[in-house]
Design a binder for these strands. Sequence first.
DNA 1: GAGTGGTCTAGACCACAAC
DNA 2: TTGTGGTCTAGACCACTCG
Lengths: 255, 255
Amino acid sequence: MPADPDRATGALYRTVAADLREAITAGRYGEAGRLPAEGALAERYGVSRGTVRQALALLRADGLVTSRRGTRRVVLGTARVQSFSELLSFTHWARSMGEEPGGRLESLVRRPADATECELLRLEPGSEVYVTLRLRTLSGTPVMVERTVYPPRVGEIVAELPADAVSHTEPLREHGILFTDADHTIDVVAANTEDARLLGCRRGSPLLREKRRTTDPTGTPVEWSQDRYLPGTVAFSIHNSLASSALSRHARDGD
Amino acid sequence: MPADPDRATGALYRTVAADLREAITAGRYGEAGRLPAEGALAERYGVSRGTVRQALALLRADGLVTSRRGTRRVVLGTARVQSFSELLSFTHWARSMGEEPGGRLESLVRRPADATECELLRLEPGSEVYVTLRLRTLSGTPVMVERTVYPPRVGEIVAELPADAVSHTEPLREHGILFTDADHTIDVVAANTEDARLLGCRRGSPLLREKRRTTDPTGTPVEWSQDRYLPGTVAFSIHNSLASSALSRHARDGD
DNA sequence: GAGTGGTCTAGACCACAAC
DNA sequence: TTGTGGTCTAGACCACTCG
């Protein structure tokens, strides 16, 4: 049973969105079919037009439907349902695909943060951070090396986890650490000696790198991570439109 | 003079959003400062609260501010302004960075579409497509190889362009071909013989690949492209939140 | 308890697409 | 000309955070 973020809260517009999403995925409006008018949907669901528009905004952001003044909305494609949580948690993601996630904590050290880390985690100079190095596997096969830097408040909790704990984001959530916003940067990097040893590839061979900075609801950074994937194991997908674009392309930015 | 998507239309909420974005970027609310309440902003701008909320939704989608029930919004970071058009057009993007975009059309052929292309461009089996191969440069240095497949309607226009035309999206816009939605997939691929020759790298060396399918306002596909970048030249950035996530991670998907 | 953002309503007018 | 989505308003109530 897949999680359904649209029904996460009791909000009416989420219910409407979930229902429409289901109908679209089931092909009930056709491949490139047109949706009913907003007014018609409002009547069908017994809600106001504003509520229907909130629901449709969710679907539009996901790239499920278009929206254009003057004409009905058109079905663009079918859903790629992946919750924010699935994206941040390797464990959650793997399980949602039916794969068995594994991992090994290679090291966990506590040390003073360097200048970059202080800036990214918004810490006072000289603060200590907790740094983890993990090897991640899918069904036993090495897939990714993960280097994460935690601020003290979060690192203290991570340090208490058993070394063989598979998921780390779940225990953190139970301790009241929430992940709500993330900035990702994706590029290619050459494997260093450590990467090569852990992943079983050659030093210098290419890896897909995702750098990620995650914050909690108050805007306080809770983690800064650098994940390196073996080529051919994963790909990242993004939807994008004239109306809303959270994706951008940058010239080379250092390490 | 940078383009300002927020002021693109005469919509009030875009004006408000542009103003707030400017204030945030100028640091007028501090590094992790709190925004005024929605009601206060409504009064300041002389608009209703609903309009203020529309404006704030734009900033939230860009990862500029948080939003949480019960407390004021918090400034998350400063703007990474990049329009949809900058993202799709190599030429537009390069110029916005102050670099000189260059390019060379290596080949343009017209041939029957294969099964994959028919599906992606939603064409009848046996339809013809136009396929281009371009080398893209920044200030004379090779950066990227671009292979694009166009449906007939679009390809006919591209085929008429002079071989030394730098931009292709701009002429297309003038011919009434609009780009409004795109799906991107990012991964790593090994350079083939052709890539290596054009980019001046070794065969088999890693390239950052972006696959992209773009549609117009009616949902009709207008291009399918595969761009391959030399490592260290570009990176892709995405913002993401519990409220809206257009990003997802996939297990290896074929070619 | 006071302040704040989240949700919902009912209505209005406009800009645009399509017939 | 008709129908559609885009924009805007004014007001209401609720859920939540914080002191």
